[in-house]
Write a protein that binds this DNA or RNA. Structure first.
Lengths: 144, 144
DNA sequence: TTTATTTCGGATAAATTTATCCTATTTATG
DNA sequence: CATAAATAGGATAAATTTATCCGAAATAAA
């Protein structure tokens, strides 16, 4: 569904959010440990999230990654996915055709449309807050 | 969503079906032309579809690929996807966690579940016949 | 102002996916 | 039986994604 980079990015953002509630910044090292991902690769993905204004980075000593508390409920899963994988999962054709719309559809266009609309809707309506609260409450996990 | 191989495989199966209605066998060359895919790579994918009994191949002179007419309405999109990409799109975790179920869910488990169930349902209930008929009727296309 | 800490970013490597090429094998037909 | 036509399959290459490494730049604190 999503690239590995995107999966790491989502989990990283969730972890950062849980720490940001406590006013804490976190390092790529801690993030990678908590979400079970390769550290250097995760750092690269974090840079991308910073550039797309999903999370905030503070350089230098006592730096790290954080998200402003009041932004946690504003950030949607869709923004994170778009920052890393782009929007092909929304706009692309399910069968990979370059041009696929109502006027020139692929044979499965209508079938895929239902699923993709559902996915789009889910991503656009799921906030980082919901996901982070699942972690804080202990009802969900970021690694096995 | 799916790999390129899978996209080609689905389109190839649809094209073969349209030809099989007319009692015609087709070559990888013709398939690749009609679905706009690399020929040799497409041939490899066809082998996989043959091994998974999605389509039938006849070797030697006057050979080619075909699907028995009465099987076209039986083959589901799910079988083709499973033959090429496996079933990770059904059973895997949306965030890539190895273990992710009701007892040990990822933070987005419930959110993903809705979408994936919808996808699974669509793939398991869409037949090759439906898709092939969209091509035969000229209401849909296999390339741009 | 020096030092320790930390993110940034470029270069590179490893792994996987996508794609090509060439030969072997199979089979209908003359 | 010989030949031509076709799929099967192994080896390899190209492209993309995933992952690592290391030095540069920024910043807080001594």
């Amino acid at each position: 569904m999503f690239s590995k980079a995107c999966e790491y990015g989502i989990k990283a953002a969730i972890f950062i959010a849980t720490k940001s509630y406590e006013g804490l910044r976190v390092s790529p090292k801690e993030i990678a440990e908590k979400i079970n991902s390769p550290q250097a690769f995760t750092a690269k993905i974090l840079q991308s999230l910073v550039r797309h204004h999903v999370v905030n980075s503070i350089k230098g000593a006592h730096g790290g990654f954080e998200i402003q508390k009041d932004r946690i409920s504003e950030v949607k899963l869709a923004q994170i996915v778009k920052a890393i994988d782009g929007d092909k999962i929304y706009v692309g054709c399910g069968l990979g055709m370059e041009k696929c719309d109502e006027n020139h559809p692929c044979p499965a266009h209508d079938k895929f449309k239902i699923v993709r609309d559902e996915l789009k809707n889910m991503l656009e309506n799921t906030t980082l807050e919901e996901l982070a609260l699942n972690i804080k409450s202990g009802t969900a996990f970021l690694k096995t």
